[in-house]
Amino acid sequence: MSTLIRPPPVSPAHAPIENVLELTSLHDIDADLYTNSRPLWHPPGARGIFGGAAIAQCLSAAQKTVTHDFTVHSMHCYFVLAGNSEIPILYHVERVRSGKSFATRTVQARQRGKVIFTTTISFVRQNSGGEKLVEHAVTMPQVPTPLEGMDDFDHGSDAAGPFQSQRIEIFDYDSPHPHTKKCRQWIKARGTISPAGGHEAHLAALAYMSDSYFVGTIARVHKLWRFSPSRKNNTKSSIDEDVLKKLLAMDDDDLKRVEFLKPDDIERIRRLKSGRQERESKSADTPEIGMMVSLDHTIYFHDPRGFRADEWMFTEMETPWSGDGRGLVFQKMFSGDGRLIATCVQEVSS
Rank of each mutant, 00 (worst) to 15 (best):
P7D: 04
P7V: 02
P9V: 13
A13R: 15
N19L: 11
V20C: 09
E22T: 08
L23C: 05
T24C: 15
T24A: 14
L26H: 08
H27G: 12
H27A: 15
H27Y: 09
D28K: 13
D30M: 06
D30V: 06
A31C: 04
L33C: 10
T35F: 01
T35P: 01
S37T: 00
W41C: 08
P44V: 07
A46N: 03
A46G: 07
A56K: 03
C58F: 06
C58N: 10
S60N: 12
S60P: 01
A61C: 13
A61S: 15
A62F: 05
Q63W: 03
D69G: 03
D69A: 02
V72C: 13
H73K: 08
Y78S: 05
V80H: 09
G83N: 06
I87G: 09
I89R: 01
L90I: 10
Y91N: 07
H92T: 09
E94H: 14
K100L: 11
K100S: 12
T106C: 08
T106M: 04
V107T: 04
G113M: 05
G113Y: 09
G113N: 07
I116K: 04
T118K: 05
N127V: 02
N127E: 14
G130M: 13
E131V: 14
E135I: 11
T139W: 10
P146T: 11
P146S: 11
G149F: 10
M150E: 14
D151T: 08
G156E: 10
G156Y: 01
S157V: 07
A159C: 04
A160M: 11
P162G: 14
Q164L: 15
Q166T: 00
Q166H: 00
R167P: 00
I170L: 11
I170W: 03
D172H: 11
D172K: 12
S175F: 07
S175V: 03
H177R: 14
H177L: 14
H179R: 12
T180S: 14
K182E: 10
R184T: 03
A189S: 15
A189K: 05
S194K: 04
G198N: 06
G198T: 03
A201G: 03
L203F: 02
A204L: 06
D211E: 08
Y213I: 10
H222S: 09
S230T: 08
R231T: 05
S238G: 08
S238F: 01
I239H: 07
E241L: 05
D242S: 13
L244K: 10
L247K: 07
A249D: 12
D252N: 13
D253P: 02
D253M: 12
K262R: 15
P263H: 11
L272V: 13
G275S: 10
E278Q: 15
R279G: 10
E280Q: 13
A284H: 09
D285P: 02
T286M: 14
P287K: 13
E288R: 14
S294D: 05
D296A: 00
Y300N: 09
F301M: 12
F301I: 06
G306A: 07
F307M: 06
A309R: 02
D310L: 03
W312T: 09
F314V: 05
F314C: 05
T315I: 08
E316Y: 04
M317I: 04
D324V: 00
R326M: 12
V329P: 04
K332E: 13
R339I: 06
C344I: 12
Q346E: 11
V348A: 06
V348R: 00
S349C: 14
